[in-house]
Design a protein around this nucleic acid. Structure first.
Lengths: 408, 408
DNA sequence: GCACGGACTGTAAGCGCTTGCAACCCCTTT
DNA sequence: AAAGGGGTTGCAAGCGCTTACAGTCCGTGC
């Protein structure tokens, strides 16, 4: 048997290629070759490669995994055999045996909004870079689904999880933590003890945006908030207040309208804001989508942006620069957030004991075409009829409406 | 031993919950409980559930897979045990044992363009609907990578493959076919014998677009083609010629500019087209992105769209309706193509013997703001100086240029 | 010239699950 | 009362790979 192994690689290879496998070598003890069963597909396995190369299957495994302790000649011989058979390792089998899958999972709410796709682009880019496969799961806000996904994913599908979570912390996070499963949360701007989090500086960004409006001379600056369950939403309100305070402007509850980051709600909120006795001359929307809603409302009211109303968004999704006029907004480095998330996750997968950390990325104000100084002070002072200066009959109607019910 | 099994479920359950596992039951022959080795994580396995429920592991497996031949009481008992332990099946293990993964792979060139994300949205939606997980792979046009991905994916990662392939057929497709691995190709509008293909009616769509321009009175209609390696590109040229012929217009080679579906190239091509002695009054761009390039060039030349130049795109990516003026384009049902791809793939996974088919989805012309009748005939006739009517000095310069070199 | 460490290689024992088959139960049929 | 049969259940044998451990071989130091 031993002399056997020593047979010169070259001719050894040839006679191994013959149909008859040398018994007790190709088929290890207790593994009777291949049963008649199914035989799913005739895909070559590690055993076929081993037989062809005239080595044991574990040696093939070592070659596949670039492990040391394989003679260079042997390695070559195995490589040739693999190429010859067109061998590709079975992913599930390695995952099962090794406990590693080489993939990461990405959990996102949906794919509709550019907000998510922007992050996903960053994730995809970096995942490819560090050699992870990407499993994309969208939850469509179905909480039960979400927990299920997480369970499945963390049980043999992926090595780590990236969760875009602009909301409250769900229960499964606790479970992941206790199972010491690597995960990173993206866009979760609130307390998350023991979790690795990547978020943008929401408060700072909002402050920049509102400070910009104040500098332009606006005194009545409204905010349309994001979804109240999102921490980022809260942070942006704080930034708004910071900026007001810094500019010496009073905080006025009537200038705070609740939104949900989406367009329709912002549209509605804007109509309500403008109906007030003292409507704002500028609106800070908590997302670009919301800003689009503001602009649509303005258009309907016959107001021009930015002449009659200034608008600032948040996020800088691609559409922001397409619309007319292009939107002034706060750049949130979405793509970079995705990239950073993967980088961090890769570290965690490598070393499970890394202490959790929180990573805050800077935001930048991007001044484009939707902000300008407020319309002449006169209009601002002559409330109610002020807007009528915008000229459209719709505006007049709103003005009339706001006169009749002085406060909402 | 036999009487044992018959022990009444109720009290049987209790004593099974006791720490001591009944030897030879919890641990099957040749499987000595759990070795001291690693024990990766203390995740419950099917054996733990079996022990707790007082049944064999295969019964648990049957419950997991909703198979018949399990007594309802037993089923319940197992369910309770699973819930109690927080059991979740190990995905790789099932994949290895069963040969099915419950996932499909999606191979896309990249994620940057809305073209791909639109398809992906459809894929994601339908995948969730039919219960497949989605593995997203972007190739970034690195051919070697692509073949590798396909090999990996088809070896135990996914049950089927969706390939967005607006290009020539790569070699690995042949391999997939010979391995009888289920796959569907999306957006591949040319011959693909034996392959399942989903594509839009590129020829028909182009015909509609160009017919629309002809109906508006345009006589000199240019086309900026797509990437020549794409079958869809070729089909759109055919549609263009169809429409010209139908309208009794001659086919003029000088009105065909080669593009690549992308913006910069189209921008350049437009500048060249307009520099001609007899510039077109309308341009059919083979993609929306290309149409944006046309519009940018027109802007630079001081021409107004659609007054001086009509533009039609193809695809109807979301940005098409955002730009000003909103783009007249051919709606390609990208999302539906993604959905249809998954539906078809699901069928193939279920029944490998399905004969291959080709599915062509209809396109729709969406008239928006970039098309109008050509500028007064006069201008069209008085070539060279005609454009100067557009007014801008840039246009004059181009006119001058076109005079000096009467034909390119 | 022989024990010894190091470089390779092979063997066994799983990873956690599915599934064909055999065994068993209880109940009907003859 | 014995045979037959359908519904349940358990067992064994894998799926294709990784990896601890146990050799095997060779070159070296004494």
């Amino acid at each position: 048997m031993e002399g056997d192994r020593r047979s010169a690689p070259t001719e050894g290879r040839r006679d191994r290629a013959a149909p008859v496998a040398r018994s007790g070598r190709a088929a290890p003890a207790g593994r009777p070759a291949r049963t008649a069963r199914a035989a799913r597909t005739a895909r070559p396995t590690i055993f076929d490669v081993a037989a062809l190369a005239g080595v044991s299957y574990s040696t093939v495994s070592r070659v596949i995994n670039d492990q040391p302790h394989v003679h260079e000649d042997t390695r070559q011989r195995v490589r040739v055999a693999m190429a010859h058979l067109g061998y590709t390792a079975h992913v599930s089998a390695r995952a099962l045996a090794s406990g590693r899958t080489g993939a990461i999972g990405l959990l996102a709410l949906e794919l509709e909004s550019s907000f998510f796709t922007a992050i996903i682009r960053g994730v995809d880019e970096q995942a490819a870079h560090v050699g992870f496969d990407l499993l994309l799961c969208t939850t469509h806000d179905r909480r039960e689904k979400e927990a299920q996904y997480v369970a499945r994913l963390s049980h043999g599908m992926v090595d780590g999880l990236l969760i875009i979570l602009p909301r409250a912390m769900p229960d499964y996070v606790g479970r992941l933590r206790s199972e010491r499963f690597p995960f990173v949360i993206i866009d979760h701007d609130e307390d998350a003890p023991g979790c690795d989090v990547i978020a943008a500086d929401n408060r700072g960004g909002a402050r920049q945006a509102v400070a910009h409006l104040a500098e332009l001379g606006h005194r009545r600056i409204a905010i349309i908030t994001g979804d109240p369950v999102a921490g980022s939403s809260h942070q942006r309100v704080l930034g708004y207040r910071d900026a007001l305070a810094a500019a010496g402007l009073p905080f006025d509850e009537t200038l705070v309208a609740q939104g949900d980051f989406l367009e329709p709600r912002a549209h509605l909120a804007t109509l309500q804001l403008m109906r007030q006795a003292a409507p704002p001359t500028a609106i800070f929307a908590s997302s670009d989508l919301a800003a689009f809603g503001v602009m649509r409302a303005a258009r309907e009211l016959g107001m021009r942006v930015p002449d009659d109303l200034s608008v600032v968004g948040f996020d800088d999704i691609p559409e922001a620069s397409y619309v007319g006029p292009p939107l002034t907004t706060v750049i949130q480095p979405l793509r970079e957030m995705g990239r950073a998330g993967v980088r961090r996750l890769a570290e965690l997968v490598r070393d499970q004991t890394e202490p959790a950390m929180r990573m805050i990325l800077h935001t930048t104000l991007m001044v484009r075409g939707t902000t300008a100084p407020p319309p002449e002070r006169l209009a601002t002072r002559r409330r109610g009829t002020g807007i009528a200066a915008a000229g459209a009959s719709v505006a007049a109607a709103v003005a009339a409406a706001s006169r009749s019910r002085s406060r909402d």
